[in-house]
Simulated scan of single mutants.
Amino acid sequence: MTPRAFVAALADVQLQGVFNPYRDHCEVHDLANAPAMRRKNLRDYLGAVEALGTDTIWMGRDLGYRGGRRTGLALTDEARLPMFATHYPGSAPAKATKGPSVAERTATEIWAVLARLDLPPLLWNVFPLHPHDPDDPMTNRRFAARELSEVTELNRALIEWLGIRRIVCIGQDAMAYAATFGVEVECVRHPSYGGVTEFRQGMQRIYGKAMRPAQASTQVALF
């Protein structure tokens, strides 16, 4: 598997009520070549993760309309894009939308913790696309089982290709699914809906002394 082959396969997935940021174009927010930009963002990111030798995934549920729908990167909003080169050398994702950068609450907290690690994880989702309510693309909904079945083999290929040994689930939605891949699975509270303190405590429990003390610059206020 290569980043190009993986992203090309992901871009081929087409489902009703699902925005695929690697093939679909948002007429409201996207630049003209946004899908191609997001494909490159993901290719470069996966290549950087492979070069680092990362063996851990932080796995959320699916892409959100304020984050991954716009960036093509899981658990990442546009406000976090300038941070990539520091933590994932060789990856410098471009903003694929018009107007000011949009921030997302979950991404803010995820990246505040990620910045404290010497070896960052691969950020990914159970369902690596953006499912939305019918006729309302700027909403988030949980993926359906039939939709998940369309991407499970891609997820399996990703885990095997990168030699992933551990999945840290961001919220309970990912836990049962992650366990099917035969790797170590841990779970922390999702930082949204009042879960920030428990999320931070969970990450501290998992990483212990490998997590550097928080700096003032990583104590980012949630939007």
Rank of each mutant, 00 (worst) to 15 (best):
W111Y: 02
P3Y: 06
K209C: 10
R80Q: 15
S217W: 09
E147P: 03
R105W: 13
N155D: 07
T152F: 05
R156V: 07
I170A: 02
E109I: 10
Y45P: 00
A8H: 11
I110A: 01
H25T: 10
H25G: 00
A210E: 14
F127D: 13
P82V: 07
F223P: 13
H25P: 00
V220G: 01
E78K: 00
T106H: 00
Y207M: 05
G99C: 07
V126Q: 05
R166F: 04
T97V: 12
A112Y: 04
Q219D: 10
G163L: 09
V49W: 11
E184L: 11
F199D: 01
R38F: 07
G171K: 08
M211Q: 14
G163F: 09
D30G: 03
N41L: 06
Q215S: 11
I170D: 01
D62M: 12
Q204P: 01
R61Y: 06
T152S: 11
T2E: 00
E109C: 11
R61G: 03
A32T: 14
F223R: 12
V185M: 01
A96C: 03
E27D: 14
A210Y: 06
Q204D: 15
L42H: 06
D55R: 14
A94H: 05
A48L: 02
S101H: 06
A115F: 08
D12F: 03
R70W: 05
V183C: 08
V168T: 02
R43S: 11
G64F: 01
R105Q: 14
H87L: 15
V196S: 13
A115Y: 04
V102T: 10
L46M: 07
L31C: 04
P131V: 09
A96Q: 06
V18H: 00
K40G: 06
P100C: 09
I159E: 10
N155R: 02
M175W: 12
R23I: 06
P100E: 15
F127R: 05
T97W: 07
M203V: 11
M138L: 13
